[in-house]
Write a protein that binds this DNA or RNA. Structure first.
Lengths: 217, 217
DNA sequence: TAGATTGTTAATCGATTAACAATC
DNA sequence: TAGATTGTTAATCGATTAACAATC
């Protein structure tokens, strides 16, 4: 099914769509131009019906009895995920995370372009944090977001100021936020959380559980 | 319920336990020494029954009619999550992510100690990547993991070599892996994935959906 | 004791998987 | 046409939430 009426899509779908896309690119490289949900699922270690259901939220991309044309599916996923668009990004916070992200070339290749880095510390403002990127003062956020058409704001500041930075970003007019601070951000625009400490904590939890559980299958 | 028999715990529980812990520390700072599931839930914007159920997987920490003693619950969460333990970490890959993590002081404060950084590039080996941390050659992984009692390996290499690095880490004897490469790692020890590009992609997906959906509530 | 709040069972909700008619 | 594989509906599984007896 599909249509203009409200359609709820499970949270995990978008992560899987990215997986499908990456896999399809590989298939294309291998010279394969039609693939079945079975084949795709096998490569990704999931169920064929999951592949079909995930795709069905967005349209009918396959041919019964045949499978999915790799090129056609790639094209559609590119539209759904915004892969061919260029996304201008501003980073707030010129500390370790801010610096690492500014220098992370992998992002550029995927269409994510860091166009500005902000900090409130005058000692950092004006310094070159990455090639061609000078740190700006946070007070210029509004103006720069508009001028440089910033679509995504990345929060790379301590937890205690993260919420207010989020509000400033939203007010400045960004469309989405990626948050590295270990605190849940409340906003009316989409927010994704990346919490490294929390992931490490989940890991130690699992390690402890694994070792202390005797009869666990 | 609780007990020695196999007890399945929902995946999202550990993230929430971390949230509870952080919130309890704040409560302690505020001088509060007893808290109800209702109060805790309100502060975290979840349901009281979720708090109670999550905690019930690990024991009976509250008093009926009273609530939870903050200190007592903190103590227990510290054990469950391994918060007071020191976790020695090795990073594989001395690129941008590796460097950023090596310099990320926030980790140290939480008991995560980077004790070694590895790379296969001779140009990087021997260089000081962070204060007091010289890059080692990957060939010394096995020895160093044993000598320095490394418990966690962080994968900060490109996707195409991530799986083999994971296998090397497991063979060397680490207990868990944190993976920054955009590929799902298969291993028999716990693995947590942190995928920044994928999170950004989910964000662009949500932004596009939000804007193109008219009647959406 | 009366009031409050837990721990746990049962009901609900959401996501995944299986099954199958439609159709290439 | 016969075989294959989709798109979609129905069944299952897993996680959250509500309800309530137990008890501080």
């Amino acid at each position: 099914m599909r249509g203009g009426n409200v359609m709820k899509i499970p949270k995990p779908v978008s992560k899987r769509l990215s997986m499908y896309y990456r896999c399809l690119e590989k298939l294309k490289d291998e010279g394969i131009d039609v693939v079945s949900s079975k084949e795709l699922a096998e490569r990704l270690d999931i169920k064929p019906s999951q592949v079909r259901k995930d795709l069905s939220y967005f349209g009918e991309f396959g041919k019964r009895g045949v499978g999915y044309h790799v090129d056609f599916l790639i094209e559609n996923l590119e539209k759904i995920l915004g892969i061919k668009e260029e996304w201008n990004i501003a980073i707030i916070g010129a500390g370790n995370i801010g610096r690492a992200l500014s220098n992370y070339v992998g992002l550029r290749e995927k269409g994510f372009k860091i166009v500005a880095v902000f900090d409130k510390d005058d000692g950092k403002v004006g310094k070159e944090i990455a090639e061609g990127i000078k740190v700006l003062h946070i007070k210029d956020l509004d103006r720069v977001v508009k001028e440089k058409n910033v679509k995504i704001g990345i929060i790379a500041v301590p937890a205690n100021v993260a919420q207010e930075v989020a509000e400033a970003l939203e007010k400045a007019g960004v469309s989405g936020i990626l948050n590295f601070a270990p605190i849940k951000i409340k906003a009316s625009i989409p927010v994704e959380e990346v919490d490294i400490s929390s992931s490490l904590r989940t890991l130690t939890f699992e390690i402890i559980r694994k070792h202390s559980t005797k009869g666990k299958k």
